[in-house]
Structure formats: structure tokens, C-alpha cells
């Protein structure tokens, strides 16, 4: 099914390269022969159902899980090799459902990770302020809400001005305002040259915000590209819903008969049919000529969600 989709894109300045990357657990192929190149400064999304292999792929890119085949390099350095410390000092990671130590305060938590990362302690205060936790810095984490923990997680990931951020389901637990602020912060980072790789289940959310995305299913990358490229490569129908004037639905049906449409289904005065994307204008012109026979039209274009489910089901 995926043969029409471009899976390799020329990336001008590759930062992350995964080559023939696999992780098999016995007969289960959690990640299977993945080829992936992510460029410097990209905001890259990874999409898939639970169990599609996103998190395993993520952990292999971080060097947390050893591949059973292939390798990952960041800036040309093998993430599982002797240069791993060099890589990790430049990488920030926010795990899904980040959990910290309840007995520490926000500031102490950040200081601990700063020390592990060999980052100056003077970064911690400003970072907490940046994620809006300056007032809660000296409160123990057991008093933090889920959203506050997530923001502390982001502050932690930003320690040491990383050139690359891995964010696993970063907006879980954030309210709509929090999500907006979060992506605004990501854009700011991107302007500063930071590369961001994130996963999300909320496709509508990621769709407008990433430069490119990869769709994973059953351990494989099924498609990579910008939202537009994915749509263009896999033509998805445009759905029309037309409310006709009383007694005019047969006339409307007849007027559209010559166009390449799916059979129109209708009940009462409403017709519903699909057209290929390149026939959209033809359909609209034909409908315009019908004038008073039509009361209302709604047109729905395929979303990324349709691309996603079309490929993975």
C-alpha cells in the first residue's frame, strides 16, 4: 500500500541518521529495518499507534536501547559507542509521563540533572522561570500538578542548551493554553537552531506544527515527508455534502452524472459523495451552475488522520 509514498527525502544537513535500524525481541519485530534521516533545525514528528515502535525507535536514537541490527548516528557519532557522553551532553530528552523524585523541590531536581549533565548550576533558575515555575521552585514535587511536572520535564530537557530535543508525547496532561505555549516555545527553539523530534497521538495538533513527519506501523516507517507531500503522494478523496432544495435532488444528481464521483448516497434532501482531489474544481463549477437547486454545501478534505489510518490499517 505504501509504495506510492516517498520514504526517503534528501535532507540538506543531516543530524540524525538511522540505517537499517532494527530491534527484535524474539520473534517480535518492535522496530524493523528503519531508515531515517532528520536534518539540522527540523521539527520532526513521529506518529503511530501504541505498539507501532515509536518509543523503541526513540530509545534507540537516544542510545537507551541497543539495536539488534543497524545503527544510529547523531552528528556522525554512534550513539551507542564510546562517544555517547559527547552526544548526550548535546541532547535533551523528555520521556513520556515524566516522573521525578517527590522528595525534592523543583529547583533541587533541576540541580541534580544539571550536575549529571555537567551543566552550570546558574542555568537552573532562569530555566525554571522560562517554563513558568519560578514561583514553585522551592516547593516539593509532591505538590506539583501534572502540567507543572511536564513543564519541569521540559526545563530538564533544555539544560545545557541542547542542539537536539527528543520529546515523547510532550503535550500529554497540558491544557489547550499549555499546548499553545508549548509549541510557541518549540518554535522559538527552532529559530535558535535546535532540532526537535517529537511523538504525538494527537494528529490534528502535530499536523500544523511539524516540518516533516514519519508514520510508523508494526515496527516500520511507512511514510516520511511533509504533510503536503504525504497528501499529494496518496490522493485522498474530497467529500462533498450537498443539501438540495426540496424536490431538486434528482436534478442535482443528473447534473453531476458526468463527473468522476463515487455513487451519491442521499436521504431527505441531502446528497453525499466523494471526488478525487483533482476533480474538486470541476465539481464546484458544476454545483455553481445549479444555482437555486442547492441550499448548502460542505466540503471536507482528507486530513493527516486519513493519511495515517489509510496507511496503518
Amino acid at each position: 500500500m505504501a509504495d506510492a509514498i516517498p520514504t526517503a527525502t534528501d535532507t540538506p544537513s543531516p543530524l540524525i541518521c538511522a540505517r537499517a535500524l532494527s530491534r527484535h525481541y524474539g520473534t517480535v519485530r518492535a522496530v524493523d529495518e528503519v531508515e531515517l534521516t532528520i536534518g539540522r533545525g527540523e521539527l520532526f514528528g513521529l506518529i503511530g499507534h501504541n505498539g507501532a515502535g515509536k518509543t523503541t525507535l526513540f530509545k534507540m536514537m537516544l542510545g537507551l536501547v541497543a539495536p539488534t541490527g543497524g545503527m544510529v548516528t547523531i552528528d556522525g557519532i554512534d550513539v551507542a559507542g564510546a562517544g555517547f557522553r559527547q552526544v548526550r551532553r548535546r541532547v535533551g530528552y523528555l520521556p513520556e509521563n515524566v516522573v521525578f523524585y517527590d522528595n525534592l523541590t523543583g529547583l533541587e531536581t533541576l540541580l541534580f540533572f544539571a550536575k549529571l549533565k555537567a551543566v552550570s548550576h546558574s542555568e537552573c533558575g532562569p530555566l525554571l522561570a522560562k517554563v513558568g515555575l519560578a514561583g514553585a521552585a522551592r516547593r516539593p514535587l509532591k505538590e506539583y500538578s501534572k502540567g507543572m511536572r511536564q513543564r519541569l520535564g521540559l526545563a530538564q530537557a533544555l539544560l545545557g542548551n541542547p542542539a537536539l530535543l527528543f520529546l515523547d508525547e510532550p503535550t500529554t496532561g497540558l491544557d489547550p493554553e499549555g499546548i499553545r505555549d508549548f509549541y510557541a516555545a518549540l518554535r522559538e527553539l527552532q529559530v535558535a537552531g535546535v532540532t526537535v523530534v517529537l511523538t504525538s497521538h494527537i494528529l490534528a495538533e502535530i499536523q500544523q506544527r511539524v516540518d516533516r513527519l514519519a508514520i510508523m506501523a508494526a515496527g516500520r516507517v511507512r511514510a516520511i515527508g511533509s504533510v503536503q507531500a504525504l497528501r499529494a503522494a496518496r490522493p485522498l478523496p474530497v467529500t462533498f455534502e450537498i443539501r438540495c432544495a426540496p424536490g431538486r435532488s434528482d436534478a442535482v444528481r443528473a447534473a453531476l452524472g458526468a463527473l468522476p464521483l463515487s455513487t451519491a448516497e442521499g436521504h431527505d434532501h441531502t446528497l453525499r459523495f466523494e471526488s478525487p482531489p483533482d476533480a474538486k474544481m470541476q465539481v464546484l463549477e458544476a454545483l455553481a451552475r445549479l444555482g437555486g437547486s442547492i441550499r448548502d454545501i460542505s466540503v471536507r478534505e482528507a486530513t493527516l488522520e486519513d493519511v495515517f489510518f489509510g496507511l496503518t490499517e
Binding site: L64, R88, R89, Y93, L116, Q156
Partner: peptide, 13 residues
């Protein structure tokens, strides 16, 4: 179990 092991191991350690 807490979920903090991955975060710890993603550090330069």
C-alpha cells in the same frame, strides 16, 4: 517502576 530510569540513563552516565 517510577519511570525515571530512562531519564537517568539518557544523561551522560
Amino acid at each position: 517502576e517510577r519511570g525515571s530510569l530512562d531519564l537517568l540513563l539518557s544523561m551522560p552516565i
